[in-house]
Write a protein that binds this DNA or RNA. Sequence first.
DNA 1: TCATTAAAGGGTC
DNA 2: GACCCTTTAATGA
Length: 231
Amino acid sequence: MNKLDESLLTGLPPFSRLERPQIREILDQATPKRHDEGAEVFREGEEADRFFLLLDGYVRVVRTTPTGDQMVLRHIAPGQLIGIAPALGRTTYPATATAASEALTLAWPTRLWPGFVTRYEGFATETWATLGRRMQELNDHLAELATKAVEQRVASAVLRMVNQTGRKVDGGIEIAFPVTRANIAEMTGTTLHTVSRLLAAWEKDGIVESRRKHIVVTAPHRLVLLSGAGG
DNA sequence: TCATTAAAGGGTC
DNA sequence: GACCCTTTAATGA
């Protein structure tokens, strides 16, 4: 079996303070896996027997409501830990993670978690920081859902994706993974029809350009204004 | 202001 | 051709 290259982990926040032998040790315990677009990485309610590092690609985190509706909670960019139920004191995954684009992960058995936290300098601190950021985002998102109008919510959701996963392209910033109108509807608690109409209107105003599953924000500051940030 | 319903066209496999 | 993604219009809460 091929050994994983140490450069995969060097520089990533959870491992940035570690020496080579420690990184080697961590990699030797990891199982790499490729996920096709749409494939599940882990499922809500399952026994959390592994935690993951997203090496490449994007992951969509989704919860299903009792009525069967899906709610998209967040998107994860490469370099982040996911499925870290043990850090939350849980034994099952709180949400389902699916590959938003073709993705590559490393997985470790959850039983190794306590050892990672105690043995590896900076690992715990970075994990807490990640959890803190996600908590902050959730708070913002919740306040937004409760108080903002649909157009503001959709604008915020698009901006969130741009900020977390955007890449520069000619004429703007592109969301780096395939997104449908329905996906955005599931992030904002509206319908795909409303999202479609909003994007069409924004495109007419020169704020975005979109093709199927593909959005480029050409005037981010105007989207910020629409999102109602700062008033 | 926004959801629902319906109809239709283009894309992709 | 089947199925998915998207657009558009009409209707009504």
